[in-house]
Amino acid sequence: MNVAVCVKQIPDPAGELALDPSTHTLVREGKLILDDSDSYGVEMALQLVESAGGGEVTLVSMAPNNETSGLRTALAMGAAKAVLISDEALAGSDALGTAKVLAAAVSRIQPDLVLAATESTDGYTGTTPVQLAELLGWPAVTFAKKVEVSTESVTVRRQTEAGYDEVVSPLPAVVTVTAGVVEPRYPSFKGIMAARSKPVEELTVADLGLEASAVGAAGARQQVISVQAAEERKAGEIVTDEGDAHQKIVAYLEQIKVL
């Protein structure tokens, strides 16, 4: 069982985020980290490979400036190797452009299964994995709460509005994993040391045989018109609980006729 995991390296969400004043795209110049959302896919992939009794986990990532710090985190967790696509032509790519790049990379790797997060933390479009599946001509099962694999199929509990569906898909397939379904392991010291020498294959748009016009800002075919301050909500009354704050809440709920 060979599993590829799409991982995104993003600016630290706890830090200050900024938009480029001319392109209105997120500034990604500083150090990038592994998106927390992707740690669940990496963990799930490692567990599936372990339960299958063989195979390996390959990371696939698209990032500016040949950034690998986030990849090293996932390699330290136990992934065997990574494919990194980095190219100036990719700046400003949208979700579909990203899916085209990932599809070309996945076609080279030929895994049995591709895992991804339901959405990234920074862009959170949540469309790339299924666009990737459509470009590959594969089935996809999104919003997985539980994943099991056999040699020929993957069985998924898929989140629905009402509860969940039990979905079985032949392989290869794309599965997106919701957060919290497995507990991502912390990289061990040994893992961190080993990650330094694990192979990261660096590719460009040309290496993948893609036209530069299909990806990047040119391929995105969308434009930010403006960015403005939103209407602000004002803070109301703030009280410190001295044993009677619950009465304040009850009075407030009465006032707005909820009670």
């Binding site: 579909l96 959170y124 299924v130 666009q131 996809a140 969308q222």
Partner: peptide, 23 residues
């Protein structure tokens, strides 16, 4: 932007080769 809506829009985007504006 529901569980199924996202799947349909994503597939349609790749099929028609048109981008999606999300959220």
């Amino acid at each position: 932007q529901t569980y199924d809506g996202r799947d349909v829009a994503s597939r349609l985007s790749a099929r028609l080769d048109r981008p999606v504006l999300t959220n």
